[in-house]
Amino acid sequence: DLNKLALTYNFYPHTDTGMGWDDFKRRNWLFKDLDLRTQAFVPGDEIKRFPLYEGLPTVEKSRGELQYVAAVELIQEANIDDIFIGDSRASIKQLRYIHYFQQNGVMNIECHLLKKYQTLYDQKFEIRKDIPEKIVRLTCPRTPGIAIEHALNRRKGSIVMQNKLAQRYSGEIDIVKQDLPFEARSNVIGWVTPEYVNLLNYIDDQTKIIFRKID
């Protein structure tokens, strides 16, 4: 009974010995086409396992990533069902983030918001169904007449709000997925924490996000 089986990938303690990302995805999608359940490892974030202490990922590119980001990548891009932590210890916060994403499709994104926008923390936002290439657009109510302030260069990870120069788009909130030029219509209201920026690559039209204040 194949419904009672799961295929578990190996983990690789030595740097540079983990599976290549493209080959891993190719293999796993073949297994998923056969309706098989698959499982893979990401490294821990507190205590790495003896004796090499280099992490225990399945995929080499996961070795240097935050375990939550690595887990989301495996789930979203490779269609992995179950995530294991191979190392000796992982933080409860990271495990909760992974579990919450698996159960609810909600990404917790740690960030810093300017003081007047901190009411946006801990709110759940949906994503527009028409996914742009360079930004993530949140489906929140627009507010006319937003003042022009903090119109800075839009770096990857910037959280921006459209100001009154954007006319009917005033008040729309976006997250920048790649470096973009200065735009007078866009106020920078915060920044995604660097360790979490790569999560932006895996947001799709089914994803919901929550901005979390940095511990």
Rank of each mutant, 00 (worst) to 15 (best):
P43T: 11
I92R: 13
I127T: 02
N201P: 03
Q118D: 09
D33C: 08
F50K: 07
L52G: 02
Y121R: 07
E110G: 05
S158F: 01
E46G: 00
N28V: 04
F211I: 06
Y53M: 10
P51W: 13
T193Q: 11
E110R: 12
T119Q: 12
D35I: 00
E195S: 15
N10I: 00
R89K: 14
Q206R: 15
I203G: 03
V136W: 02
R89C: 11
I148P: 00
Q76L: 02
R212T: 09
T58D: 02
K25I: 13
V188N: 03
E195G: 07
F41E: 01
Y196V: 02
W21P: 00
G145R: 06
P194H: 02
Q162K: 08
S186N: 13
I80C: 04
G20H: 07
L180D: 06
Y12L: 11
L30H: 11
E149H: 14
F50D: 12
L2N: 12
F41T: 01
V59Y: 00
I148T: 04
S91K: 06
A40S: 10
K61E: 08
W191P: 00
G18F: 00
I127D: 07
D16G: 04
A184T: 01
I92W: 10
A71H: 03
K129T: 14
R49F: 03
I135V: 14
N153V: 10
F84Y: 14
L34Y: 15
S62D: 03
I189T: 05
K134M: 05
F101Q: 06
L95C: 13
K115M: 10
R49D: 09
I135A: 11
D130G: 05
S170R: 00
Y12K: 11
L34C: 15
Q123R: 14
I92V: 13
F11L: 14
R96G: 09
I85T: 03
F211V: 09
R96Y: 12
G44V: 07
L56I: 07
K177S: 04
D33R: 13
A184P: 06
L138V: 09
L165S: 03
R26E: 11
T15Q: 12
K164T: 13
W21R: 06
K129Y: 11
I92C: 06
F84E: 03
G44S: 07
I214E: 15
E149R: 13
D204T: 13
K61M: 04
I109W: 05
F101L: 08
I209S: 05
K177W: 09
I109L: 12
N198E: 15
Y68R: 04
L74I: 01
L7P: 00
F41D: 01
I135R: 06
T15E: 13
S88K: 15
G190R: 06
E195H: 10
T8G: 06
Y12S: 10
A70P: 08
A40E: 02
G171Q: 03
D130N: 12
N104L: 11
L66S: 11
A78R: 01
T17D: 02
T193N: 13
N104V: 01
